[in-house]
Nucleic acid binder design. Structure first.
Length: 413
RNA sequence: GCGCAGAUGGCGGAGUGGUCAAUCGCAUCUGACUGUAAAUCAGACGCCUUCGGGCUACGUAGGUUCAAAUCCUACUCUGCGCA
């Protein structure tokens, strides 16, 4: 159907135990072995690492963000640079998220205790979760940011840098993503809060679908960009089966001038136990031959579950953010097969622990440095600590995905 | 030796009669982090506790007062100045 696209997806193995698939997404800039973990480099950098380091971790692909890059350095600079790849010296495949998540994280979620997940089981209004947090302790002078506002046409964002107002429509998001030049771009969506009632979820979903069409149209109408970049639609629908399935159906069949989406993202903010049911509903309906990216997930255990439900790629800030704040993955063979535990290296017990972070890890950090040294770097507030831990956590993720792929091939997952 | 100034919790430093177990910062300890407003944020931080409270504390020793980290006296120590 989508002939001559800059992206092809080949499924090499299908699991008989689950809906897992082992495949390859081929782009002009190289292949992505799937299932794959996609490190997040929001502002055109995997925080703390050079692109060469990221390559060494065997990461095939990274993800950057439209909203953040639009604010800084801006599309003019990115265009003059010749696109994000040359700008940041990353020559592999890249995703850009559309800014849809910021409509949520800087909108209804702003200052509240909710992000990708909410702590409460049911998405009823939860006083604790919705409690306002005060501004930034580290920078009290920073102006209090007004939340982003969604309307039928688009989203009014405030700049996190200076508070200035910026209006994103689907057309604008796609145009910015054209300027940025990532290999795989996302339609502009609204990530809804799980606290919103079903009526709102429905209304928002219809809007997201209209925005998806507008995104597709904007992309297809730009022949140059269309030839170089793949576009993924984003499924929403909260925790409602009918809405999730409707969304997968509508986006799966959506066409503009006979052109469909090249793949799909699955979005949303969830109560923990609602995520996998939503993923299962969606993947039941989405076209099988196109890649499915689960946005913002995550935790190795979550990835396993989602792979079993047929997801192919995953991006998540957790490994990089945790690394910067002191928490690293450590293999824990005493637990189950994909056993690991989170270890906070800033805890007192590691001050004089001269072993590696993880005995089983082959990364640069684990082969050269001790827990004690990295613990010291954190305490001394030396930025190398975050860098070394990020190397480890990302390598943990890529090794983890290698194992997932092998297990699918071996018919064990 | 004389004259000033000062001695507060691990450190720095508020507090100058009751609402002080004592603001705040640092350090320390613990926790959180899932399409990155995050090299961030939250909590704890004298001792004991049946979590109601109890006990010991603001250099040392006395004193004044119903009440003292806060006022008075002496002493010890520290800094500065003068000899």
């Amino acid at each position: 159907m989508n002939q001559g696209r800059p992206l092809t997806f080949t499924i090499q193995h299908k699991s008989t135990l689950s809906k897992a698939r082992r495949g390859v997404i081929s782009t002009v800039r190289g292949d992505i072995q799937t299932p794959a973990f996609v490190p997040v480099g929001t502002k055109a950098t995997i925080k703390g690492l050079t692109p060469e380091m990221v390559k060494d971790l065997k990461a095939d692909v990274i993800l950057a963000n439209t909203y953040h890059l639009y604010l800084q350095p801006g599309t003019e600079v990115l265009e003059k640079a010749g696109g994000i790849h040359t700008f940041m010296q990353w020559d592999g495949p890249m995703f850009t998220d559309s800014g849809g998540f910021q409509a949520f994280s800087l909108g209804v979620a702003l200052g509240k205790n909710i992000t990708k997940f909410t702590s409460k089981a049911r998405p009823d209004f939860d006083e604790i979760a919705l409690q306002e947090k005060t501004g930034h302790k580290s920078d009290p002078d920073r102006p209090v940011l007004q939340p982003a506002k969604v309307d039928e046409q688009g989203v009014m964002f405030r700049s996190i840098i200076d508070g200035s107002a910026h209006y994103f429509t689907p057309k604008k998001s796609i145009e910015i993503q054209h300027s940025i030049g990532a290999d795989i771009i996302f339609a502009f969506d609204e990530c809804t809060s799980p606290h919103e009632p079903v009526e709102y979820q429905k209304r928002s979903l219809d809007r997201t679908h209209r925005w998806a069409m507008e995104s597709l149209k904007t992309h297809v109408d730009n022949a140059d960009a269309f030839a170089k970049q793949a576009l993924f639609g984003i499924v929403q629908g909260g925790r409602h089966e009918d809405l999730r399935k409707e969304s997968a159906q509508v986006l799966g069949e959506m066409k503009y001038n006979g052109v469909e989406f090249d793949g799909f993202g699955i979005g949303g903010s969830f109560a923990k136990e609602d995520m996998m049911t939503a993923v299962a509903w969606v993947n039941e309906v989405l076209p099988e031959n196109k890649p499915r990216h689960l946005l913002g997930i995550g935790e190795p255990a979550d990835i396993i579950s989602a792979v079993k439900e047929g997801c192919d790629t995953f991006d998540c800030v957790m490994p990089t953010r945790n690394a910067r704040t002191g928490t690293v993955f450590v293999a824990d063979s005493s637990s189950e097969r994909y056993g690991y535990k989170n270890v906070n290296l800033r805890n007192a017990e590691f001050k004089a622990d001269f072993g590696p972070i993880d005995n089983e890890c082959d990364c640069y950090t684990c082969t050269n440095y001790t827990r004690a040294y990295i613990a010291h770097l954190y305490r001394a507030q030396e930025m190398l600590g975050g860098t070394l831990a990020t190397i480890h956590n990302l390598r943990f993720m890529t090794r983890f995905m290698e194992k997932v792929r092998e297990d699918i091939e071996k018919g064990e997952l």
